[in-house]
Amino acid sequence: MGEGAFRLTLVFQAARRLDRAHQTASTAAAALKDRADAGEPAALSVWGALHLQLAIVAARQNDAERAYREIEVARRAAERLGEDRNDYNTEFGPTNVALHEVAVAVELGDAGLALRTAATVDPSALSPERRGRYLIDIARAHGQRRNLAGAVEALTQAADVTPEQVAGHPLARGLVADLLRMDQSEDPDLRRLAERLGMR
């Protein structure tokens, strides 16, 4: 049930129903808390993953204090696990917590923190989908800093890892559209990326 709530939270976020996402994740996390507190690894994984989603929801609601509080809850759960796991396909563990810290910083417009955190992360053991989403966040951070080359490089890497995900992701496509408007020099790498995504 907790895993189902985790998936439903993602659906609500995609639909921009952030209040429903928060309600769903917080209710499921509360229901799992006793089992997580008891140290059951699968329960800890799902519980921690729910708190990561609560962090993203808070960041999208521009509540930085709550977002980073949820990141810390998830970090403590990951430290208790002591390793990256994939119970119920949550990919929860220390690495995924760091990736979500990058995502939270990007959502809150703190590109510097996002890129500093990203420099400490090795996501190679995670799924292609998770790595691709992480690279989109790195690209967004570079975009916030008006660093066209960095954004294009990260998006190109993301497209190499998960081409379908990047081609259809509204954040990736929106960033490419912004970069095209910003680019005065007709950057060939950006043009190639736009063509690859079917945007030229």
Rank of each mutant, 00 (worst) to 15 (best):
D160K: 13
I138N: 01
A154W: 05
P163W: 02
G109L: 09
D137Q: 11
N86V: 04
P123N: 15
N89H: 05
R146Y: 06
T120E: 12
A172N: 12
V97K: 10
D63R: 00
I138G: 08
N89V: 14
E70P: 08
T162I: 12
I138L: 06
A111R: 03
A64K: 09
V106M: 00
Y68I: 03
G143D: 08
N96H: 14
E70C: 00
I71W: 11
S127W: 02
F92W: 07
R66I: 00
R146Q: 14
I138F: 08
A154R: 00
V152R: 01
P94Q: 04
L126S: 12
R140Q: 07
V102A: 07
A64V: 05
R145K: 15
D137E: 15
Q157A: 10
N89Y: 10
H142G: 15
H142F: 12
R133K: 14
L108Y: 09
A78W: 03
R173Y: 05
L113S: 15
G174Q: 11
L115C: 03
D84P: 00
A119W: 09
D122S: 12
G109A: 09
L135E: 12
T162G: 06
H142M: 09
A78I: 10
R85H: 07
A74E: 10
A103F: 10
D137S: 15
D63I: 00
F92D: 01
I136T: 12
A77W: 15
A158E: 11
E83P: 08
E65A: 14
N89S: 02
E153I: 02
S124D: 10
Y88T: 00
A119E: 09
G82Q: 02
A105D: 07
A154E: 12
N62M: 15
R76W: 10
A74C: 13
S127V: 07
A159E: 07
E101I: 04
P123R: 11
F92S: 05
R146N: 09
R80Y: 02
A151R: 00
A77M: 04
L148W: 12
R173M: 14
N147G: 08
G174A: 02
N96P: 11
S124V: 04
Y134R: 14
H142L: 14
E70A: 10
R173C: 11
A64C: 13
R130E: 07
G112P: 03
A139H: 09
E65H: 00
R116C: 11
R75G: 01
R116E: 13
L171G: 07
A149F: 04
Y68H: 01
V104W: 03
E79Q: 04
A125H: 10
R76G: 05
A118F: 01
L135P: 08
I71C: 03
A154M: 04
P94Y: 03
E129V: 12
G109Y: 11
E65W: 01
Q61C: 09
I136V: 11
R145M: 13
A172R: 02
R133L: 08
A103R: 02
T117Q: 13
R145V: 06
L148T: 13
Q61H: 05
T162K: 13
V106N: 04
P170C: 11
R69F: 03
I71S: 08
A118L: 08
